[in-house]
Amino acid sequence: MAPLSIIAGEIRQRWRPLLIWGVLFAALHQVAMFLALVLRFRDWPNYVTFYDWPGNVLHIIRSTPSVRDMIGIIREEWLIEIGRMNYDYGTGISEWSLNIMPSRLLVLCLLGAMVGLAFSLLRRNACAAPTRAGLKATTGLGAFMVALTNVTMSWVVCCATPTWVVGLAMLGLGTSTSLALERSGPLLSVMGFGLLTALILYLAWRKSRPAQQSKGVPAHA
């Protein structure tokens, strides 16, 4: 129980900085996606749409009998869509867009806070430089897995639905490979969170260890 109480204590003491970590992480994620789209397509967005997210969520709650379905559908609701419309053909087609989804912002906020907590615990841990580097890399890997699977860019080639594999496709991964990976998104996200959780528990356990070892040893012998 000692690691858990150390984590709880850390959160109690440092909840403000952790919240800032979370909010900043979520905001930077959106900025990174936006820049990725602009750089990849070499065009600025030419439209922005704001959605009535609270109203839409209420509508979904009222019209979806199953709570499980409700959560799945709300998860895909958009708050803001910013993208580029191509008017060369017909009445216009949205080529690409960044879709800001509150559900993903929440996930990214939690992820940012966890990364902040991991770094905070790491700072208070006395360990050798290679171990520290390994732990930092593990934090980075966990964060990367979650951040990657929470990409909300859409590209009309993928039938215009925002999916995390659009990020992979934009990076140049083959279409078939990207699509084959699409359904493994939730698993990768869970693995990323699992990795971060395990790391935080490990760091808290390490922090609790010297205190346990010193039990019964006179402080000033």
Partner: peptide, 8 residues
């Protein structure tokens, strides 16, 4: 195989 929208 490349993934491209109709307009692109």
């Amino acid at each position: 195989l490349k993934n491209q929208s109709p307009a692109v």
